[in-house]
Design a protein around this nucleic acid. Structure first.
Ligand SMILES: [Mn+2]
Ligand SMILES: [Mn+2]
Ligand SMILES: [Zn+2]
Ligand SMILES: [Zn+2]
Lengths: 140, 140
DNA sequence: TTCCAGTTTTAGACATATTCTAAAATCAAA
DNA sequence: TTTGATTTTAGAATATGTCTAAAACTGGAA
């Protein structure tokens, strides 16, 4: 079974009529741990599929979001980014590079959100800022 | 002492040359617990000062930010909002109204940010989403 | 006071991100 | 094959924010 066939079936399983454009976009945006902007998706998809239009990329990203295949965040800079990680998690933003890094849900403790008077909290996320740290050399 | 004189001195104390426009913008944006967008600031300031320009509002908001009088957040919807609360705090977004509500720093526990491998966290904020809850009637 | 150099404001152009429109292309089903 | 619905497309439109260069203003020096 080809990669295209597998992705095609995956889209169908989620109620999305597959098309060549949608499969090409899915291949890039649903299998990355980066957080690409629509323009980055467009540029990447055009490498293999040069005639794809900007409108299709925006339409398809929104469709994938509506079908629950990705999330869209506005974390900074007036640009929306796609997030293929649909499980709950937190985000770290490298202030030098702008890179957005996923932080596992269980790696951070958040408490007492149920005690906020007058606010019914349905979901939450910790947004951290800082710099990536060089790992200290491991002495195995 | 008039309100204008007080604000004027406040701006001077922070290294900002006061002008009629800057005082009018400061009056609205530095004394609110809402989180207005630049366009909301423009509309509000124009009620008293109809000839103020959009460029001046953007320039002044940025100047106030550079001088530490407010912060700017990108919380959702591709619009930047002004935050006159410069102390550390968290944010709750009402998903029905879009309203942004400040949550005191000490009302939420956040832990283990220092244990994230490879990430040096300088600052963080919890972004919560949900609905405002009607207060239950207090039986005093 | 008047003058002047620096600062501030302004309208509008420009830039960027996203959505909308309406026609063309494609597709699925009969 | 026909056909009606869906999808894609180029480009226009909209939304948010920045830049430019000229005009207006300001605070001291003369
Ligand atoms: Mn804040
Ligand atoms: Mn935008
Ligand atoms: Zn993520
Ligand atoms: Zn706030």
């Amino acid at each position: 079974m080809t990669d295209h066939e597998r992705l095609s079936g995956f889209l169908q399983d989620h109620g999305i009529q597959p098309s060549a454009q949608r499969v090409a976009i899915a291949r890039f945006v649903l299998h990355t741990d980066r957080h690409p902007t629509a323009d980055e998706v467009l540029a990447e998809v055009r490498r293999d599929f040069p005639m794809v239009s900007r409108a299709t990329v925006y339409n398809t990203i929104r469709l994938f979001m509506e079908k629950g295949l990705l999330r869209i965040h506005q974390l900074e800079g007036g640009v929306a980014v796609c997030d293929a990680n649909t499980a709950r998690h937190h985000h770290f933003i490298d202030e030098d590079t702008g890179e957005i890094v996923d932080v596992p849900w269980d790696a951070v403790d958040v408490g007492r959100l149920d005690e906020l008077a007058g606010l019914s909290v349905d979901s939450w996320m910790v947004v951290m800022r800082g710099r990536r740290r060089r790992e200290p050399p491991s002495r195995d």
